[in-house]
């Protein structure tokens, strides 16, 4: 039997509620104050910090509200590692929205990071060294090629 033969009615959250803002818990606007505080700390001491969005009682509508309020900045990076991760700067430079997905595409963790550059984007010296070895290999292949031609 095909799955769609099972009579399941999907009720979208927008139609669940009487009134527009009913699914907003009111917890999201408060977060803006905390983000502002963390941004001040970043400027004063250079110390990065993060807010764990999954650990807070936020409804999907709250998250949408916050995402919309913070907006989309100029930088967005995608990391492919055991599922996709997106790191995108909001319209407030230094405030990043970081979402980690697992291999099945489900959200594994979600943060707001207040930092100049998220740690995950920086290359590790050990990895850079491996990259350099690869470059050397490419270059030595070049000279071998030039000898043979």
């Amino acid at each position: 039997m095909p799955l769609d033969a099972i009579p399941v009615v999907v009720v979208h959250s927008a139609t669940n509620q009487i009134g527009d803002n009913a699914v907003l818990s009111g917890n999201a606007p408060v977060l803006l104050h905390e983000i502002a505080e963390l941004t001040r700390k970043l400027l004063d001491s250079g110390e990065s910090s993060a807010i764990d969005l999954r650990a807070l009682p936020l409804t999907p509508a709250d998250l949408d509200w916050l995402r919309e309020a913070l907006g989309q900045g100029q930088v967005a990076a995608t990391l492919e590692a055991e599922g996709e991760s997106t790191l995108s700067e909001t319209i407030c430079p230094g405030v990043w929205w970081v979402t980690h997905h697992n291999e099945n595409g489900a959200v594994a963790s979600e943060f707001i990071e207040v930092t100049f550059v998220p740690e995950l984007l920086k290359a590790h010296p050990d990895d850079v060294r491996i990259g350099l070895e690869h470059l050397d290999l490419l270059i030595s292949d070049l000279s071998n090629d030039s000898v043979s031609t």
């Binding site: 993060a50 764990d52 999954r54 650990a55 990391l79 590692a81 055991e82 991760s85 980690h100 594994a108 963790s109 943060f111 740690e119 995950l120």
Partner: peptide, 9 residues
């Protein structure tokens, strides 16, 4: 690192 970040959170 991503795994550890998730675990720590």
């Amino acid at each position: 690192m991503k795994y550890c970040a998730t675990l720590a959170s």
